[in-house]
């Protein structure tokens, strides 16, 4: 089961100032043959981290020792493309706890929330400033307070509030998942099915 709980996180960040980073880059399809959720971190951003002969690409940010942390900051439309949840598993397996961008692809966002990886949506201008700051000063620390829905650059840098679905926020703060909830209302779901059957009979 994934680690779902999220409340407060303080960390340095890893900047990835590209837009439309798709899930094929996060985890290429040829690594999707596994049947468990573990071990995908090894191949996170595989084709950007390594060249075709398997040598480390020193120019790529994850291979740069100056940048460390559990927060990835990326250009807009992060996680577009394939619905593969393996992309989120690769990020969490590598050690990321949150991703910051100005907007996320819908399926990626849902997948993240279902795995305790917090997608933090910040205004585009704030994102561009943040990317500049952390590229220039890799030691910059940030703080994410989920309860207050506040993203802050430490110390005493700028802060910005972020949106999150109140139900999902509660799930993350308590470490619960949707399946727990859906299982608890199975009788109500069966009732919905029964009413639909009746409706179909009436319309005949």
């Amino acid at each position: 089961m994934p680690k779902l709980k999220f409340d407060i996180l303080e960390s340095t960040c890893i900047p990835l100032p590209l837009e439309n980073i798709d899930t094929d880059q996060i985890i290429p399809a040829r690594f999707l043959s596994a049947t468990s959720r573990e071990g995908f971190g090894e191949n996170l951003f595989r084709d950007w981290r390594y060249d075709t002969s398997g040598n480390k690409n020193d120019a790529f940010i994850l291979n740069n020792q100056n940048y460390k942390g559990t927060v990835l900051v990326a250009g807009k439309n992060f996680g577009c493309g394939s619905s593969r949840e393996h992309a989120v598993w690769a990020l969490t397996d590598y050690g990321f706890r949150a991703v910051v961008s100005s907007f996320f692809a819908d399926i990626f966002k849902n997948n993240s929330l279902n795995n305790g990886l917090l997608p933090v949506v910040v205004p585009e201008e704030f994102l561009n400033d943040l990317l500049e700051i952390i590229q220039r000063e890799p030691e910059t620390r940030i703080r994410i307070d989920l309860d207050k829905q506040l993203f802050s650059v430490l110390p005493p840098g700028e802060s910005v509030e972020f949106e999150i679905n109140p139900y999902k926020k509660k799930c993350l703060l308590k470490g619960l998942d949707d399946i727990d909830y859906l299982l608890s209302i199975r009788e109500i779901i069966a009732g919905y099915e029964f009413r639909n059957k009746l409706k179909r009979c009436e319309s005949k």
């Binding site: 619905s83 849902n110 279902n114 998942d177 949707d178 299982l183 209302i185 779901i189």
Partner: peptide, 17 residues
Amino acid sequence: GIGTSEVEMVLASQCIL
């Protein structure tokens, strides 16, 4: 399209949030 956690939701309850 949905992710694998949501596939599990549908298998478990025929519903997703």
